[in-house]
Design a protein around this nucleic acid. Structure first.
Lengths: 149, 149
DNA sequence: GGCATAGTGATAACGATTATCATTATCCCA
DNA sequence: TGGGATAATGATAATCGTTATCACTATGCC
């Protein structure tokens, strides 16, 4: 089964360094990780910045981007880029891999996983002699709330 | 089975109008569709512009974006946005839906489809009372060429 | 305590995409 | 068949998320 969410290579937006070696303690980074783990998930950098400002009123947007890169780089956060092209972040590591059901009406995200799909993806890759390292599955449509309207 | 590639709503980059009603004939649009259908697929707007310039030396990049929006809107082209956030385009309509295996080393794209995965996605959505309209599956890793190196 | 250097904030720069606007081309209809 | 309404176009400014730069600050090791 594939369990990585963060994309490894490729022109990859959020990547500062590959691990935490040599990193110093940083209250901003901790605050941002805290925002990630305590928040609703799937936050954009801007939303994370807004939330972080409540704890650290002087934190800058650049620091948020840097911290997100860093946290992705050392596996504490995961980035994913939906169809609108704006990166969103969620805590990773302790949390299991999941795919996303994205409501095109209200914009909400549902996390879901189907072990059989995961397994079939590996098979599909193998069929094309492709060595998978990560994947991304997004299903767009209407959530139960919006479908009822 | 889900067969739509283009995403319907959502802050969606390439969408000008939902159909071709009221559209006038346009040699640029035709040239761009021709670039799409005769090219290798998965081209970015810039690459499409470069190719179109060989046929129409004065065509502007804005026209390329407009034409792509238009072609996506009337189902003749499909847009997809990989992890680097840069939109890529391929001809649609006559071509069947497929997912993408994307090589993180050489950047090549492999088109693939697994009917069973398609089916399971519908099931997964249903399990969350979600009404799917389209989806996107991207598997990142190494193509057979790059894995051998 | 002091020094090397990682972290930070402000802000400029960047790149893909979109909007604007004046001009040109298309097509309908008298 | 030649206006006239308006869609299409090209040049370019604007936008927006993200990244780079740079001067300054904080951390942690000696």
């Amino acid at each position: 089964m594939i369990i990585v969410i963060t994309m490894p290579k490729l022109p990859f937006k959020a990547r500062e360094k590959s691990d935490c070696l040599g990193a110093r303690r940083s209250t901003r980074r901790e605050a941002i990780l805290d925002v990630l783990t305590s928040g609703p998930g799937h936050l954009s950098a801007e939303e994370i910045h807004k939330a972080a400002l409540k704890r650290l009123p002087r934190i800058g947007i650049a620091t948020v981007y840097r911290a997100l890169k860093f946290l992705c780089g050392c596996g504490k956060a995961a980035e994913f880029i939906p169809a609108d092209g704006v990166a969103r972040y969620e805590p990773a590591g302790s949390r299991a891999h999941h795919d996303h059901l994205i409501c095109t009406s209200c914009g909400c995200f549902i996390e879901a996983v189907d072990p059989e799909i995961e397994r079939l993806q590996v098979r599909l890759a193998a069929r094309h002699r492709f060595k998978p390292s990560s994947h991304k599955l997004e299903i767009y449509g209407l959530c139960s709330n919006c479908a009822g309207k």
